[in-house]
Design a protein around this nucleic acid. Sequence first.
DNA 1: ACAATAGTGTCTTTTAGACACTATCGG
DNA 2: CCGATAGTGTCTAAAAGACACTATTGT
Lengths: 216, 216
Amino acid sequence: MHVAESLKKYEHPYLTVDGVLFRFDGGLDVKLCRNDEIGKLCLPGGFVPVDRLAVDVLREKVMAKAGESGFYAEQLQTYDGLDRDPRSRVVSIAYLCLTCGGTDGNGWYRLDGDVLRGSDGELALGDLGFDHGGIVADARRRLVNKLWYSDLVRHLLPGMFTMPEIQAVYEGLEGKDYYNNFKRDMGSRLAPVGLRKDGKPGRKAVLYEWNSEWEV
Amino acid sequence: MHVAESLKKYEHPYLTVDGVLFRFDGGLDVKLCRNDEIGKLCLPGGFVPVDRLAVDVLREKVMAKAGESGFYAEQLQTYDGLDRDPRSRVVSIAYLCLTCGGTDGNGWYRLDGDVLRGSDGELALGDLGFDHGGIVADARRRLVNKLWYSDLVRHLLPGMFTMPEIQAVYEGLEGKDYYNNFKRDMGSRLAPVGLRKDGKPGRKAVLYEWNSEWEV
DNA sequence: ACAATAGTGTCTTTTAGACACTATCGG
DNA sequence: CCGATAGTGTCTAAAAGACACTATTGT
């Protein structure tokens, strides 16, 4: 068609995806991988070609660069600053991604305030490549904001979990104490499916799964 | 640099912006303009060149195609479906835009459920071009969701307004009744700045402005 | 028995919903 | 005075915060 034709020679921005993959294990961890070109830790991601959906490219790149698959992903925001990549104009669609435990044990960094702690030492959010530090901060804010009016937390937990376990996720992410009111506050989100039998002392915990009836 | 070089010949998606500009005047109105190429009503917007910010292009295009300026704008979501534009792969960053009254009186359509009513008749959201019907629906949902935990409503109102006026916006958008509790619910958001003196019968209403101290 | 963990009950405080009533206006 | 419109007070119901207490488990 004629508009598309006239745009053939039109120089337009590159499009990329970046994934902020979180897990929760006593604290919030984010997956990072080293970018050899700029020599910094970055979010996994890559360029979006004409014939592929951003989220599909995301899954492929996160698998290739970070060894993770099977995670939950939803769009976070699109970053289009003119100089976010000094090499050329690159607009990036960022995704908030959640997983439970993770496939590959490497590349996880505990996000504690503005500092990232990994097995190879400690760095600040601002030390990440490009504008990725800000993207991680935005992703965490979104995750925390949506905790109670979405089912995001599901994706940070296994299919079955106990009340103390899910409460620890909420309390860790929100930095607040729900005392013994947590079950009450969960309302109809959870459905009991059994008892946990671990060798530890103390009363056996009831196992729950997410109630599929529940909706935001 | 070498990556950018190697990407020069790489065919990548076009990037556009689309603006969902709302106003509130007894009901929610959205600004649309006719796209002559596809012969349908569409959101105002256009292509993003390499050297410009999406939001700047948005303002320019909304001014050029819809005659509106001075509105509030925040990013809504990015739409990247492979076939959203049959002519070629076009990824669009959509913006939620708000204004009070508007500059140009034309092109406003009352959004009432799924139907759009304008001076030239009535159509459904699904009759808009591309995926713009869905984008409008997403924008309204976002606006309504953020009403209480953001200051979005400011941008739908003039600098000074009365309690019944702002209450009407909330009640119209949420479809619920706040009885006489609205002032209480507004908490510290508003600050009184005078009295409205219109010629109409009834007690004079107190004029308020947004309290700059208040934050989400 | 006891430390450790899970879970229940029950207060108080705060917030939300509903509406009766008072206060001003113009004509 | 009367119909309109704006605004206050108060009562009840529901939700949130805080914590004492009970219930099980392994050692």
